[in-house]
Each structure stands twice: as C-alpha cells, then as structure tokens.
Design a protein around this nucleic acid. Structure first.
Length: 473
RNA sequence: GCUCCCUUCGUCUAGAGGCCUAGGACAUAGCCCUCUCAAGGCUGUAACACGGGUUCGAAUCCCGUAGGGAGCGCCA
C-alpha cells in the first residue's frame, strides 16, 4: 500500500528547490501546497536545498530562496538542509548498494552511449541504457566508471498519486539510471531518494514534471528497504498566453511581487486558487487556506497565470487587512518615490481612503503623492478646466470658511462644502472639483472631505491660495 | 520516435449519471449609486475539444481521434 499513511503518523512534507538565483512563482505554488498540506495535518514542513550541481549554485542564490520564503511566511519547521553537506551519507548508501548488488559500475564511455542512443533513435525506440555492464565483474583500464541503479527488469510500478490517481509504469520502460558520476558525485534522482528516506518524508508534493521520475525513485527506495511516501504531482503554471511561464510574461520571481507592492498573502491566495478551489470562495486568509486545503481537490491540468485577477485578489486583501499592516509597506513604496513619512497616523489614514482605489501598494503610493509632498504639481489640463474665473468665488468662499473651521475633520469639512454649494445654488461638484484640483493638482482623489482632512489645514489653505491666484490670472 | 500526463466561458474554476435551461470569480459591456476616481450593487455576452459507445438518462462512465504538456542527460 504505497503511501497510505495511518492517521496516527505525522505528516512530513518538503520543498526542495534548486538554487537558480530566483524563486519562481511556480515553485512557490508547489511550496505552498506542500506547506498547506503539512499545516492542515498539523505535520512538519521541511526546506531542503538541492544544490548538488555545485558550480551553478551560489550563496546569493540560496539567499534569494530564503528571503522569498520568509516574505511569503512559508516557514519551515526543519532545515534548510543542503545536499552538498550530505556527501558522506550519499557515499555510504552508494557503497551499500554496490555491496548488495542493487547498483553496479558501468564502464561505458560517453561515445559508446551516444552511439547506442543514436541507434535506438534511428530505430524509433525510446533511447535508454541497455544494461550491457550489468554482468561485468572486471574494470576497464583507463576508465573511471559511473554507478548505475539496477532497475527491476519486469513488473510494474504503481503510483497512487494524490492528484492524478493511479498511474502505472512498466519496469521494462525504465532503464538503469546513473546514480553517481565518474567523479564519484551522486546525481539528483539518487539524492532525492536518500534525502526523502532519511528525512522521513511522508508526502512528496512537487511539480508534475517529476511524475516520470517517480517510478525510478520508488524502485530505488524499495531497493534500499524503504517504504515509498505518498506522491502528489501538481501541474505547472502557464503564462497568460498558455505557453510555459517565462520572463517574457512579466514577473516570475516571487520577490518581484514584493517590490511591486503586493501583499504576500494575496499572492499566496491567488496561487492557491490556481488549480484549487473551495466552493465559490475566492478570498482566503492564510488561516482559511490551511483549514480548507485538501490536495485531493487540486486540479490535474496546468493553469494559466492571470495578472489581472492577481491584482483584484491583492486589492481585496488590501481592503480587508488591518491598516497597520498597510502603513509600513506604503511608507516603503513612498520612499522609493522620494517621499518621506514617519507619521503612522497619516499613513494609515491615506491607506484607509486609498485602498479601494489602488490595486497594489506601489500604485497607492503613486496616487498619494499630494498627501506627502510639500509642493504639488498642478496638472495643466485639470487646472484650465476647473480653476476658471468662474470658480474663484467658490474657492474664495471655501478658503474663508475652512480657515475658520473649528474641527479639521471630514464631517465638518463636508458640511461646509455642502453649505457653500447650496448658498451658491450649484451642485456639490462645482465646489468639490475646483477644490480637488487646488488640493491635489488633479481631478482624481478620494472624497474631497477626506482628502482635505488628511492634507491638513495649513497645507490646504496654502494650496487654495495658490489655486485662487492661478485662476485669477 | 517511445512512455506518461492533461482537455468545462478569453482566463481561474464548480460539477462524483438525473439537482445543468451548465453555477461562481476575473476580464468585458450596460445600468444603479455618486463631488472625481474607485469600491459596491444589479444585468448582459460567453464554455462541456471532436467522434463513437454504455444507459431510460452523460459535462460526468468506456473506447478512439485531435490538440497541448512532461520525461527519455555523467542537469536538477
């Protein structure tokens, strides 16, 4: 009964990225599913860095993964483990397999193997090693051998995949894969098996590009006397055009989304809903996802990444989260625009009125310059339209009454503006729009009373004076 | 080429033989609300890849076909 664990057994999942210099959002999604599965089952989640290919992997590349996981809040209960630090253990298992005969040395040269491959291809066969060194007992002088796994020649391997259901592979389709290179270093498929066994992984949740590796890994695990874990192969993410997601589709790195002003829980929510659903619910807090997640409901088909929906999900989260969560991120985004603000009260106030009019915190910062900048730029077009000679009486009246206003908050400001409109016999728009241009420099802002309140009396009056002067020209 | 996987509105999905006149969400169009922009509300356009079966009845089960993807490395 491969992979069926009793309830009493603790679930252990893992995320095993290869440090390529970026945390890909496809990887984030499998990490998330792994993490959710462990959290839901009150199990453990392990982070393991697959860095066997030493040259390509740098410390910075590992740092990127760690930073990304931290930003996302996908905390590991164990690790990070590094494969490069486990060499002695791999060596040990290799020796053990050689001794037991489940692995053997292969002295074929690369040229020989290439020829074999070419012949098979010419015969329209699947290229695979034919096992010619299986029975060899004597070394070939001058050749450093590789080590191959002795795969069972017949029978089948059944994978009861958590998302795909039963998948059956014939052993005859599998060949004896190389588990150690001629320089003695172990290869990926072998390391994974040893690691998953040693770390007692109960549920391997990974990309479905690994589905074809699974029968080999199961065979190796059995040869080592281990019991295979359960496997769940989740689909990959496609670009909006249905092609494999790549840089040309825009941001594929998780940290880019942080820089673009997305909330990590929103990214997680969006990624989870890509291939998974829970009734008609679209917006989930992380806790809700943990409670509702079930790998069995994950879709088999690959899903296309839709940036517009991510934007919507992000805004929905911005509108629900406490303002104190938004303020620091808004401050950071403002800083990138060269605008300083240490006023937590103001930051939260701005976030409160802007969150329903911005999709990201970056956009919020861009739309909120006039709340933080001392000098604002007057948009020509807006000014010509609304700061006309006709608007001067209204503006003057607003200036006069607002400077005398007792309490500088939205309600009295609103009452004042309404009263002025009524006195002048015009709609509120005739007062609000010129004032909006005066205060913000443009025609778009949150409700004018709230906007004025946040801008503050002194700055508001100064901007009014300037606008009146402009209109009177 | 071989093996394996996948296929419901443009996109993400619901759907476990009758509840389907195929539901929800994003996007899109219209209306409402309204001081601008939003947010919100209402309404609309829009899908079971195709062909055969099985069944009283199929989006759902079976078999093909087509299309897409992955794997077949001394990469991970």
């Amino acid at each position: 009964m491969a992979g069926i664990m009793s309830d009493s057994m603790t679930v252990v999942t893992r995320f095993a990225p290869s440090p390529t210099g970026m945390l890909h959002i496809g990887g984030v999604r499998t990490a998330l599913f792994s993490w959710l599965y462990a959290r839901h089952a009150r199990g453990r989640f392990i982070l393991r860095i697959e860095d066997t290919d030493r040259e390509r992997h740098t410390e910075e590349a590992v740092g990127v993964i760690l930073d990304g996981m931290q930003w996302l809040g996908l905390a590991a209960d164990e690790g990070p483990y590094y494969q490069t630090q486990r060499s002695p253990r791999y060596r040990e298992v290799l020796e053990q397999m050689l001794a037991s005969g489940t692995a053997y040395r292969c002295y074929c040269t690369k040229e020989e193997l290439e020829r074999l491959r070419a012949e098979q291809l010419a015969r329209k066969e699947k290229p695979r090693y034919d096992g010619r060194c299986r029975g060899r007992t004597e070394p070939r002088p001058g050749i450093e051998p590789v080590i191959r796994f002795r795969n069972p020649p017949d029978g089948e391997v059944i994978v009861d995949d958590l998302v795909h259901g039963r998948v059956v592979f014939q052993n005859a389709e599998l060949d004896d894969l190389i588990i150690a290179r001629s320089d003695g270093t172990p290869t990926y498929n072998f390391c994974v098996v040893v690691d998953d066994m040693d770390m007692r992984i109960t549920h391997v949740i990974r990309g479905d590009d690994h589905l074809n590796n699974t029968p080999r890994q199961i065979n190796m695990l059995r040869a080592l006397g281990g019991e295979p874990p359960a496997y769940g192969h989740v689909s990959m993410i496609l670009g909006p055009d249905g092609a494999k997601l790549s840089k040309r589709h825009g941001a594929v790195s998780a940290l880019q989304y942080r820089d673009e002003g997305y909330l990590p829980e929103a990214l997680l929510n969006y990624l989870a809903r890509l291939g998974w659903s829970h009734g008609d619910q679209e917006i989930f807090t992380v806790e809700e996802m943990v409670a509702a997640f079930d790998i069995a409901n994950v879709n088999k088909a690959a899903a296309a990444f839709n940036p517009e929906k991510l934007l919507w999900v992000n805004q929905q989260h911005m509108m629900r989260v406490p303002l104190s969560r938004l303020a620091p991120i808004l401050r950071e985004q403002l800083a990138r625009l060269g605008l300083e603000s240490r006023d937590e009260q103001l930051l939260e106030g701005v976030a409160a009125v802007q969150r329903e009019r911005s999709k990201t915190l970056k956009e919020m910062a861009e739309l909120s310059r006039y709340f933080f900048a001392e000098d604002i730029a007057l948009d020509e077009k807006s000014a010509r339209k609304h700061l006309t000679g006709e608007s001067v009486p209204a503006l003057a009246k607003v200036r006069e009454r607002l400077s005398a206003l007792g309490e500088w908050t939205a309600e009295p400001i609103h009452a004042t503006l309404s009263a002025i409109a009524a006195e002048l016999g015009v709609g509120l728009g005739k007062v609000a729009q010129p004032l909006r241009v005066a205060l913000t420099g443009g025609t778009v802002s949150p409700p004018i009373d709230a906007t004025a309140a946040l801008i503050g009396r002194n700055r508001a009056i100064a901007r009014l004076d300037r606008a009146i002067a402009w209109a009177g020209k």
